[in-house]
C-alpha cells in the first residue's frame, strides 16, 4: 500500500478529503476516523480456538493409524538415521562423540530398541515362483522395480541360474486387530511354529524378544554405511553372515521341536539347485 501511504498523506493535506495526489477517489474520506498510533503489544494475549473433542469414529481412526505406524516402525522398513549421522557430513568418531551422560554403557541398554539405518529388504519374498522349465526361481515382484535396484532387493536375484537362498521368506504381517492389546500383537502368529503343543506365555514372550533382537540387529549395516559406496556384487557373502545371527540359537532353545513339514526347507520338493546348508530349522520362516 505504498501509494496509500505517501500519496494519501499529501492528498489529505493539499487536496482536502477523499483525494490522492490531488485527484478525487471514489471512496470517501472519513473525518471521524481516529487512528491509534500507540505501539501495539508485542505478544497480545491470544485465545486459541479449542477444537471439539474427538468423536468415537475419529478416535478409532487415530488408533488405527497409530497401530499401523507402530507396526511399520517395528517392521523391517523403518529407519532412523539419528542425530549423530548428519546427512552429507562425514561421521566423526572418537571420544569426542560420546555422550557423557547417556553414552556410558549400562546393563539396561541390552534391552534398548536398536535403531536401524538401513531397511532390511531381504526379509520379504519377492514373489518367488519355481520356473520348472529353466529349473530356476523367477521373482515375479522384481519387475516392478528398476533393474538397477534388483541386487539391492535380493542379492540372490543376480546369482547365476537365479538360485534361491535356502530360507523360505515370509511377510511379516499381523493378523491381530488394532483395537485389542495392540502393543503385544505385532508378531505374526505362525501356526507352523508352535503347532505341536501350546507355548506358555513366558515362552511366547521370550520368543518375541528373540525375534525383536534379531530383527533389530544391524551391526553389519552400520559397518557398511561407514564404508560408504560399495559394489552391490560383493555384498553377497555378508548377507549370508547376517542370516547366521544369534537368532537361530534362541529359536532352537525354546521351540526346537521336530517339525516334519519343515524338515526339508521347503516341504521336501527336490529342485536340483535347492541344497540344504544345514542351517537353522524352520525358524527363519519368520521373516
Amino acid at each position: 500500500m505504498s501509494r496509500g501511504g505517501r500519496g494519501g498523506w499529501r492528498g489529505g493535506r493539499l487536496g482536502g478529503p477523499g483525494k490522492i495526489a490531488g485527484a478525487d477517489v471514489p471512496w470517501a474520506w472519513d473525518p471521524d476516523l481516529k487512528l491509534d498510533y500507540t505501539p501495539s503489544q508485542l505478544y497480545p494475549p491470544v485465545q486459541p480456538p479449542v477444537p471439539a473433542p474427538l468423536t468415537h469414529p475419529e478416535r478409532l481412526q487415530v488408533s488405527l493409524y497409530r497401530h499401523l505406524r507402530d507396526r511399520i516402525h517395528e517392521g523391517p522398513l523403518y529407519t532412523v538415521l539419528g542425530d549423530s549421522h548428519r546427512v552429507g557430513h562425514k561421521e566423526a568418531s572418537g571420544a569426542g562423540q560420546i555422550d557423557p551422560f547417556e553414552g556410558v554403557p549400562t546393563y539396561s541398554m541390552r534391552y534398548v530398541k536398536k535403531k536401524r539405518k538401513l531397511p532390511r529388504l531381504d526379509t520379504r519374498p519377492y514373489g518367488e515362483v519355481a520356473d520348472l522349465a529353466r529349473a530356476s526361481w523367477v521373482r515375479r515382484l522384481l519387475k516392478y522395480f528398476p533393474k538397477e535396484l534388483w541386487s539391492t532387493l535380493d542379492p540372490d536375484s543376480t546369482a547365476p541360474g537365479g538360485a534361491r537362498s535356502s530360507k523360505k521368506k515370509k511377510l511379516t504381517i499381523s493378523t491381530a486387530h488394532a483395537n485389542g492389546l495392540s502393543e503385544d500383537e505385532w508378531a505374526s502368529p505362525d501356526p507352523e511354529q508352535g503347532g505341536d503343543g501350546g507355548l506358555s506365555s513366558k515362552a511366547t514372550l521370550e520368543k518375541r524378544k528373540g525375534m525383536l533382537n534379531s530383527l533389530l540387529n544391524d551391526e553389519e549395516d552400520e559397518e557398511d554405511t561407514k564404508d560408504g559406496v560399495r559394489n552391490a556384487d560383493d555384498e553377497q557373502p555378508e548377507e549370508e553372515e547376517e542370516a547366521d545371527d544369534d537368532f537361530e540359537d534362541e529359536e532352537e532353545e525354546m521351540a526346537g521341536d521336530y517339525n516334519a513339514e519343515g524338515y526339508f526347507e521347503d516341504g521336501g520338493d527336490d529342485y536340483p539347485d535347492d541344497f540344504d546348508d544345514g542351517g537353522g530349522a524352520d525358524g527363519e520362516g519368520w521373516y
Partner: peptide
C-alpha cells in the same frame, strides 16, 4: 547419501 543407502531408501 552413499549409493548403497540410497538404493535401500529407494526400494522402500
Amino acid at each position: 547419501l552413499p549409493l548403497r543407502q540410497l538404493k535401500h531408501g529407494l526400494v522402500v
